[in-house]
Design a protein around this nucleic acid. Sequence first.
DNA 1: AGTAATACTACTAAATAGGTAGTATTAACG
DNA 2: CGTTAATACTACCTATTTAGTAGTATTACT
Lengths: 139, 139
Amino acid sequence: MFRFNKDMEYALISLVEMSRQKEFQLLSARELSQRYAIPFKLLARILQKLSTDGLIKSVKGPMGGYRLNEQPENIRVSRILMAVRGEERIADCMSPGGDCAQDKIGCIIKPLIQVFQDKWVSFVENTTLDEFTGSNGNG
Amino acid sequence: MFRFNKDMEYALISLVEMSRQKEFQLLSARELSQRYAIPFKLLARILQKLSTDGLIKSVKGPMGGYRLNEQPENIRVSRILMAVRGEERIADCMSPGGDCAQDKIGCIIKPLIQVFQDKWVSFVENTTLDEFTGSNGNG
DNA sequence: AGTAATACTACTAAATAGGTAGTATTAACG
DNA sequence: CGTTAATACTACCTATTTAGTAGTATTACT
Ligand code: FES
Ligand code: FES
């Protein structure tokens, strides 16, 4: 609960790495997979999602690979989440029209859940990739 | 990923309900279980965790049950999380001494993960139960 | 033609979440 | 003192989600 999963971790690693490439220089799934010991096919699938979204650009064939399609300062964490995981809420009842079983008497914790949801959305909307690419703490 | 699970949902419902009881009045697991259609044994186990933590007080025997052991304004969400789930981070590498596989070259996304971790902790530390007990939005 | 890259889909394994069951302990009440 | 209704604890099972594997198709450089 409330944990980054591997897909997001791999997506973030890939995007940060790409942001460090020289402009228009491509980075292949194979290269990333080996550099970070990430299962190749798994990583490829994630990169394809980022590509479908338009966050990154893909080039097929030998010498192909991926590169960022946006400036890091324009890449919001919310967009990465959307590309990799699709639309997601912190609880089912936060979906449009969604609700839990206690609708008759009114759910007593919905306001609480809503506060979490709003804060979360605000956070991922206001956090961009470039905030992290500069400082490379070891660890 | 980043979703409330049932345990937390049930814990929150229980705590908010207790905060609405008259002072020192007990609420039993059976009553809560029926009122919210929550599996009894499952709910009982969660309440026992809250009791072990000291968040709520338990009374055994007929006429027994649970009541809040703290003022709602002193119950931080972080404490509820700790009682129900134990120590948890948004990623393994956020644990003391923890790290991902890329320690040689320095993990490029650790600063990013750290930002999330810090913001998250700050949020759950600064959010208390009483912020929600007043407004009971239906839905 | 051969090869090295992405694209797509189906499947499997591992981990987590959610729920069930049974027994022990405690205390009110007749 | 026995019955009963409550919490306390532990083991187990099932369902869902996460993580990883496999195979094939497509594209384009050489
Ligand atoms: S409506 Fe969200 S938990 Fe009840
Ligand atoms: S140290 Fe946290 S993902 Fe690398």
